[in-house]
């Protein structure tokens, strides 16, 4: 079973007066439980592809399938519902809701899903423990370091046990030591939960953790480097 399948994706967008090619006939398949990095220089299309896979952006043409279901033709409401239940997101920065504590941020997606309070609480405390933030559940984001905030975001991303986690430059604002810790956490979660991870990055240190690295340039896949992934 493929976790992600993209067929002939094209996307252009305007940047001022310029028309920029975001995706140029992209075909891609990612297996369930994969740990994949999308690598490209700035403007290379990795974030555009990640957004398209995550249902945050719609392609101009082509098809996207998540766990076998086509998503590129869904309405905004259906896409929101799909994101809520099937995908976990970790963004580069501003990942947390500032007025919610770490625990409440982890619970956020589950709460929107309607998970009972007791279950949410138990799960969020377990996850905070798992990402090394046990005992910090009552802290607000402003009271935490960048690395700790990203760990909370990771805990939130996997809280509702999504099949797929999409991370866009998750280490961009972290120092190298914190980046390594975060990536080790990703790997551990990937192995432990069998969650598929797709990470957009241009950081070589991050790519070193991936089992597959897809290199993009000007919206096209130029190299698909498979390491130990089937």
């Amino acid at each position: 079973m493929k976790s992600v399948r993209c067929v002939d994706l094209c996307k252009t967008y305007r940047q001022g007066d310029l028309e920029v090619t975001g995706l140029d006939h992209v075909d891609l398949e990612i297996n369930e439980g994969g740990f994949v990095c999308l690598s490209a220089p700035s403007g290379g299309g990795k974030t555009t592809l990640l957004n398209a896979i995550g249902g945050l952006d719609t392609p101009d043409s082509g098809e996207i399938y998540l766990a076998g279901d086509r998503i590129d033709n869904l309405s905004k409401g259906e896409l929101a519902e799909m994101r809520l239940h099937q995908i976990g997101f970790v963004f580069q920065a501003y990942n947390l809701i500032p007025v919610l504590t770490a625990r409440e941020n982890v619970e956020f997606v589950m709460e929107v899903q309607g998970v009972a309070a007791a279950s949410r609480r138990k799960r969020s405390l377990e996850l905070l423990e798992e990402v090394g933030l046990g005992g910090l559940g009552d802290r607000l984001p402003a009271q935490m370091s960048g690395g700790q905030q990203q760990r909370v975001a990771v805990a939130r991303a996997i809280a509702s046990r999504p099949a797929l986690v999409l991370a866009d430059e998750p280490t961009a604002n972290l120092d190298s030591q914190t980046s390594d810790q975060l990536m080790e956490l990703f790997v551990e979660l990937n192995e432990h939960h069998k969650t598929t991870f797709v990470i957009a990055t241009h950081d070589q240190r991050v790519m070193a953790y991936a089992r597959r690295v897809i290199h993009m340039l000007d919206g096209r896949i130029v190299d698909d480097e498979r390491r130990d992934e089937a």
């Binding site: 945050l56 994101r83 239940h85 809701i97 929107v112 939130r156």
Partner: peptide, 16 residues
């Protein structure tokens, strides 16, 4: 704006 975008990205509906 970014926070609202984040909540929408995480699956909160526009109605919410």
């Amino acid at each position: 704006v970014r926070e609202i975008g984040l909540m929408l990205a995480l699956g909160m509906t526009p109605r919410s």
